[in-house]
Design a protein around this nucleic acid. Structure first.
Lengths: 200, 200
DNA sequence: TTTAATTTTGACAGCGCAGTCAAGAACGCT
DNA sequence: AGCGTTCTTGACTGCGCTGTCAAAATTAAA
């Protein structure tokens, strides 16, 4: 009976994400969002509640895609350490626009963590998921002897995610690809030859 | 002849910085700033031009202090590698509030790099300064045999700054001190035992 | 004491914002 | 075809925002 929705929800979220990503939550007006999504005001409010709800939907979607990407690289891979290296080098290998665009996930943490518990929750679960993915890669790499047996994979997972975040911040600042590659190289070196990790 | 200013400029910048730091540029209203600074509207506009000018003054001040801190640790130090470790572990050793407060410099890059060339310029010079400081620490550490002779200190400087940024993002997300310590430990390990850095 | 310079004060203007409301349009079932 | 339900359209509201203006206050020199 009901009249069906005329726009594609996923497509709309995707477009909203691009706007939020470029301008941040505070820097984005509903007018911008509606124009980008190509829908009317009421449609948006009916579908997402409010600007904040739309933001959460966009962030969730972004993180889901990021996570899927990571898991994908983990699944079909010849060498786990090679996969890790590829992931880190991926930041350096991106286009100049891609590099300076930065990471929507990091942006959301920086802008919203201080006031939005829902964003924090999303960020924490995405963090846990990425760290776990890295951890499994490291564990597999250990099994294959690509990294030393003394490496603590849990710490290594955290280290790798932190490194990835550092790379993305550096990229946004305008770091050259060669600089980013050098950073990635050090991270890989840390895995190859880590002494008992400093856990006090 | 002129009537002297009633407020202390530096103090005002300091208080404005705290507000910008907490809420970001877009999230901060002039009203909030004036209240925090304890001055009137016109006083602020006369002294700083506009909200953006005040923001730049606050950012410049923040970066100057961060840089001075780094150089200070470099100057009066027993072991360069120990100093580097202290700096990285400093993030983990901060209070919970300090950790989740994050870094104003990173915040400014994430929020403003896409639209404010002046912020980018400030960020780049601060980045260069920090990288150079780390580079000198690494060079000195090499001279003392604390890190291997094969380590490229330029790359190492970049790596260390990137690691510090990653640590701060992780801290803002709510990472536990032990997790941050583990990350710092891996970074130090990378310096101790880095093979020829991956620079292609 | 007058004067010139500057800061402070308080009010104000114009604009853009997020969110609401009511009326009209489109659909599937009966 | 008619009906009930939902979506869409467009106007509107109240509020908060940044930046401006003019007048009052304060100082040091003349």
């Amino acid at each position: 009976m009901p009249r069906p929705r005329e726009f594609d929800r996923d497509e709309a979220i995707e477009r909203a994400m691009a706007v939020f990503w470029e301008h941040g939550f505070d820097g984005t007006s509903t007018e911008q969002l509606l124009q980008a999504m190509g829908i009317g005001r009421q449609s948006m409010y009916a579908a997402f509640g409010d600007k904040h709800g739309l933001y959460l939907a966009a962030l969730e979607r972004y993180q889901a895609r990021q996570g899927a990407d990571l898991l994908e690289r983990l699944r079909a891979v010849a060498s786990p350490l090679g996969a890790i290296e590829d992931i880190l080098l991926g930041v350096a290998g991106d286009t100049a626009e891609g590099r300076s665009r930065g990471c929507f996930g990091i942006q959301s943490i920086i802008e919203m963590a201080g006031r939005d518990p829902e964003v924090v929750t999303l960020a924490r679960s995405a963090t846990a998921l990425c760290e776990a993915a890295f951890e499994r890669m490291v564990a597999e790499a250990k099994r294959r002897g690509e990294v030393g047996a003394h490496v603590d994979e849990r710490s290594a997972g955290r280290f790798l995610l932190s490194t990835l975040q550092g790379l993305r911040v550096s990229a946004r600042t305008g770091a050259a690809p060669e600089a980013l590659r050098a950073v990635a190289g050090f991270a890989i070196a840390a895995l190859r030859a880590a002494p008992p990790s400093t856990s006090s």
